[in-house]
Design a protein around this nucleic acid. Structure first.
Lengths: 415, 415
DNA sequence: AAAACATTGTTAGAAAACTTGACAAAACTC
DNA sequence: GAGTTTTGTCAAGTTTTCTAACAATGTTTT
């Protein structure tokens, strides 16, 4: 009798216009996040609608060419279902992941299949004009390489390492993005490309990416911890991204771990980021070398140029000093994550970012600390894993967000 | 064109039947949580529906006598609106708050006006049969006193100090409720009274109570911190109670604050609860007396019987030793709350529970610590206040939850 | 191989819940 | 007292869904 108002995942906010077919968009999301496609009958069952209503909705989606039918695979007895899936050829989107020290641009079709990607070194502290320029140049080159024009794109997803004021389309008091506060990031990119842009926090995007196509597929209570130069987290609660009252939720990197610890860029002392972030790891390595400890790191060249990545690769090759540094970072991370587990009771923690690529060397101390310091009720049910999309979690999340705009917009278009 | 599917606050889960009139329930909630009532025109505006549609919905609510019309107050020019409000005489509900050491039963009408309440000392460790029996006896006495029968009640709301498995209607691995794990709390009370029962965590109820009628009216990003014998928190995120994957979210009392701190009942060491909970405060007072410090507390009788409440009242009367104990508890609380602020970026923190009644003696150290240890972006926007419902926050929340059932059920009934 | 069965997808008519636009009602303003 | 403004209602039309029957297309049974 009534429209069953299923929520779409994440924030697909209708483009200020009145939404007509709420269920149509929910169906679209169900199709795009069901691996291997889904039939009308199953859609109807899962959304608690009649098959007749589903026929009408799906016809609408087919007409706009956003969805296509695939050859049916026989399940059991009875008429074999017609499988529905997103029509990849309908268009393309771009996902851009800006880290503190790297820039990754990704090109994907409407079915979220990655066509190509490029990554370059980068400095977020160069400010918005230069950084956004670099990103645009990189994207333009990528388009050219694939003989595409901006008209082939449906939307752009962008991730930056700072808290987002999403209505305004800018960052809000970011700890590590000097010069960006108040700059109209979304508007300037939308004007430059004449395309809708989705601006997000990079850790949020990591959570979305891993939820959609990674380690946390379908986990509706998921926290993604990004351990790179900075440390941030993206929270997926009840299947929706949680941003907090002013958009700065999930700032796990600036939890105070040691009251009298090293100074952090944010101005406080003893923040997790200042103890276990990429910069802290590199600093500890340099100190170890200066103290004359026996380590592979000492032979890598100038002491001042050692990075967290060097420490990680040395640790993987068996270097004890490097392993100890990584392990200690894991313990610090574990303290913060244990707090997050107690407060948010997630079903899964996905650890991503550059430093996380060392795997169990970092993860095991985290697991141990969480088991020791969290309430049993929460600690027993939480899984702690490495990101399976590796360095691409956030960019993939940006693609997902871009598709959330592009697909739903394409659906609205009447022929 | 479409039904605008506004969400009802909290979890009013439709009683397993298909919900017909989603908007009707949203309208009902808007009426009941708008102080002083609201007109059809304003309802239509706020819910983004036409006035004509609102007329139909309101007629439905009037017919079921859940809502009534009040004399219009002239606002500006134009026809004065007819104000709608909940019909108090339509029925009654009970709210029960079980703490670790106290039991509070509250009787209220459909407009959430409290008729009466009783509080008695209590021990949650006596187990479910005895405790639930005590609560039922108390409620029966209250009904008798007001010449009412169970048939006058529409629902019962119950709060207990442990994590809730809401579908099962029981607590799940509670740290301080020995003998309760797995006991069918909700079912047994429903059978006993033949009424629908809403089972909730006590801190969650505190958050709901303060949101609905207390310090956090209308704040959709609110954390309620209950500082009593135990320490727990209730999280209101995006206007909805957040329970986590297994119902044990918000367990702030078991954050590790001092790795080598005192042992906690949960089995870990250095938990917030073991440093700043009621038991810890009483213990510190006893230690101070034994050390021969000059304090009013020494003259209160047997050292072993000193409680947190004694410390609080001594602190309010100017006792320096007691003040120092309270202040230190505030600092510990501040560390945990600073973490909560960083992770969850709320707009308001409401501190309630027995210990919180000392006011600024506890609150000021909390504010100072949060300002020092949280990210500026979050710390600047968060207000930290004492619960205005004082000792009744949770019971009031239980009443709200009971009304969520009773009102919506009364609305469904056709004459 | 034919009949029976199971399941999917479609069609037609009815029902529910809106919207629009017109209009009556009840105040205030000038 | 006429005009203005805002509220609440009515009637007709639209959108979206449901029910119920049925066609389509496989597998299973006889």
């Amino acid at each position: 009798m009534t429209q069953t108002a299923e929520m779409t995942p994440f924030t697909w906010s209708p483009p200020q216009q009145v939404v007509k077919n709420l269920n149509k968009h929910a169906v679209l999301d169900l199709i795009r996040f069901t691996p291997g496609g889904i039939s009308r009958a199953e859609l109807a069952q899962r959304m608690d609608l009649s098959r007749a209503a589903m026929t009408a909705i799906v016809n609408d989606l087919l007409e706009s060419k956003v969805v296509r039918e695939t050859e049916s695979r026989n399940k059991q007895s009875g008429r074999p279902p017609i499988i529905l899936e997103i029509n990849p050829a309908r268009g393309f989107v771009a996902g851009i992941d800006m880290g503190a020290s790297h820039l990754l641009v990704m090109l994907a079709d409407f079915a979220a299949q990655v066509l190509d990607e490029v990554e370059v070194p980068f400095n977020i502290a160069d400010g918005p004009e230069k950084c956004l320029g670099q990103a645009s140049t990189l994207l333009a080159e990528l388009l050219k390489k694939h003989e595409m024009t901006p008209a082939n794109l449906g939307a752009i997803g962008l991730g930056v390492p700072g808290p987002i004021a999403s209505e305004a389309g800018m960052v809000f008091a970011p700890p590590i993005m000097p010069g960006w506060d108040g700059y109209p990031i979304q508007a300037s990119l939308e004007e430059k490309w004449n395309l809708p842009v989705s601006l997000n926090n990079d850790a949020e995007l990591g959570a979305i990416g891993e939820w959609a196509y990674g380690a946390g597929r379908g986990e509706n209570f998921l926290a993604y911890i990004k351990v790179g130069t900075g440390i941030g987290s993206g929270l997926l609660l009840n299947g929706q991204i949680y941003r907090g009252a002013t958009g700065s939720a999930g700032e796990i990197g600036h939890l105070t771990i040691e009251e009298n610890g090293p100074l952090c860029e944010c101005g406080n002392a003893g923040c997790l980021e200042a103890l276990a972030g990429g910069r802290a790891i590199a600093r500890q390595a340099r100190e170890a070398i200066r103290q004359g400890k026996r380590t592979l790191l000492a032979s890598l060249g100038p002491v001042e140029e050692i990075t967290a990545r060097d420490v990680a690769s040395a640790a993987r090759r068996g270097d004890l000093v490097a392993q100890q540094i990584i392990s200690r970072a894991g313990s610090y991370l574990g303290i913060a994550i244990a707090g997050l587990v107690n407060l948010f009771n997630p079903r899964m923690i996905v650890v991503g970012g550059g430093v996380a690529q060392v795997g169990d060397l970092l993860l095991q101390p985290i697991r141990d600390t969480v088991a020791r310091r969290s309430l049993q009720a929460s600690a027993r049910t939480v899984k702690i894993n490495t990101a399976v999309l590796r360095r691409h979690s956030s960019a993939m999340g940006a693609v997902v967000q871009a598709l959330s705009i592009a697909l739903h917009q394409a659906t609205e278009q009447r022929r």
